[in-house]
Amino acid sequence: MKDETVNVEHRPLGRIGGALFCFSIFITSFYGAIFILGPCFALIYIWPWLYRRVVDRIVAFWLIFPIALLEKVFRVKFFVKGDGFNYMERTVIIMNHRTRVDWMLFWPCLFHCARLRKLKIVLKSDLKYIPGPGWAMQAAGFIFLDRKWERDRPHVEDLLHYFNDPNINEPLILLLFPEGTDLTENTKSRSDKFADKQGLPKYDYVLHPRTTGFTHLVKQLVEANAIDCIHDITVGYPAGLIRNENDLIEGKMPKEVHFSITRHPVDTLPTSNEEQMSSWLNEKWRAKEEKLKKFYTSDRQFLDTRQPYWDKRTISIWIALLFWPSFIVVCSYCLIVSQMLKWYGLGSIVFYIFALRANGGVEKLEMAVFQALHNKNLKKD
């Protein structure tokens, strides 16, 4: 594996700054899941479509907070080249997984170029068990996978069917990392062994993608007429690299993050044939390896000539930067002085635990209630 960041400094805030960043992200998601998302759960049993729209906007507003910290506090610079996004498009985003926090560093790109509220991320199922952030991601309807396709397939199908139901009709931007994990020495070794077994080339800047889940996901979206295109995104870190959460805690941040975007309209893809779609994905990863090789061995710039539209949205960023710290202070104070609020908070925590144990998470409870209401209406008719 090539070391892309040799002799390149991070933009550090020190361990205190890093610890405050991580604490802020955790506590705002924890309080938000309890005191903002919690009251919305009643809507699941009354107007599921309204619940989905309200929660998506709440989660999108929270996502602006880490974006604000990255841009205004850590002063990370983001650069985008290529095709960009259309606000109204339903798309699957495929991206190389260089670090464990690529998803967070991608949020600014989507915020400035598209709509955060439409975002659903395909994640490891372990993340749903994290108090606070995991609860919020469940409520957001993120797709959690066990990485065993036999078990994941029914859940993915049910969730996509739910989002595409005419009564919900929620257009999606699905973020998927086909490599399944981030690039490390260990994961590269496993990827190289797979390449040797399959007679494929070994890569230095990416891992060989897992094609089964991707091809089935795209096929199901096409059959539901719920996808307009695929955005192939390559991320590069020319100045600094966050390898994992420990780097965040230590206050390390990249000085720059670069994205190269290629848009593929769905009618130009071999979506009717899963084997051909698998080959298409493998070919894109071969091209991604070459693109990243040029990126890191030249002037650390992507060579795309187009510059997508970038909406600065500075007002939203400053509002989030002011609101969420204030929200922490108000919630902490109210918990200290109000016994009723303490009981409410405890009840909300019990609800999240119950939903996880009984249904597998809030997102599965949401689907189960919707299906029960749908069946009830059918019987009335």
Rank of each mutant, 00 (worst) to 15 (best):
D3K: 08
T5K: 07
G14N: 03
A19L: 14
A19S: 15
F21Q: 07
C22Q: 09
I27G: 00
Y31H: 03
I36S: 10
L37G: 08
F41T: 05
I44T: 13
I46W: 08
L50K: 00
R52T: 02
V54H: 05
V55W: 02
V55T: 09
R57Y: 09
W62C: 03
L63T: 06
L69I: 15
E71V: 02
E71G: 00
R75E: 12
R75C: 12
K81T: 10
G84F: 04
I94K: 10
N96S: 03
H97T: 08
T99G: 08
T99F: 00
V101A: 14
W103M: 07
W103S: 10
L105Y: 01
F106Q: 14
L110Y: 12
F111I: 08
F111C: 09
C113D: 06
A114V: 03
A114H: 11
A114P: 00
R117F: 09
R117W: 14
I121W: 02
I121D: 02
V122P: 01
L123Y: 10
A139I: 05
L145W: 05
L145E: 07
E150I: 08
E150K: 10
H155P: 02
V156S: 02
D158A: 13
D158T: 04
D165K: 07
P166D: 13
N169V: 01
E170D: 11
P171R: 01
L172N: 08
I173Y: 04
I173G: 07
L174N: 05
L176D: 14
E179D: 07
D182Y: 12
T184W: 01
D192A: 12
D192V: 11
K193Q: 11
K197T: 13
Q198A: 11
G199S: 12
P201C: 06
F214S: 07
V218C: 07
L221A: 08
V222A: 15
A224T: 02
A224Y: 11
A226E: 00
I230C: 02
I230D: 03
D232F: 04
D232I: 09
T234H: 07
Y237S: 00
G240A: 04
N246H: 12
D247T: 00
G251Q: 01
K252C: 13
V257Q: 01
H258S: 02
H258E: 01
S260E: 15
L269R: 06
L269V: 04
N273Q: 11
E274S: 15
E274T: 15
E275R: 10
S279W: 06
K284V: 06
W285Q: 01
R286A: 14
A287Y: 07
A287I: 09
K288R: 09
F295P: 01
Y296K: 01
R300A: 12
Q301V: 14
D304H: 05
T305M: 08
T305P: 00
R306N: 12
Q307H: 11
D311K: 14
D311A: 10
R313S: 14
R313T: 13
S316N: 08
I317Y: 04
F323K: 01
V329S: 04
V329I: 13
C331L: 02
C331N: 10
C334N: 13
V337H: 09
K342A: 09
Y344E: 06
Y344N: 05
L346N: 06
V350D: 03
Y352F: 12
Y352L: 05
F354P: 00
A355P: 02
V362M: 07
A368R: 13
K376E: 09
N377K: 11
K379D: 15
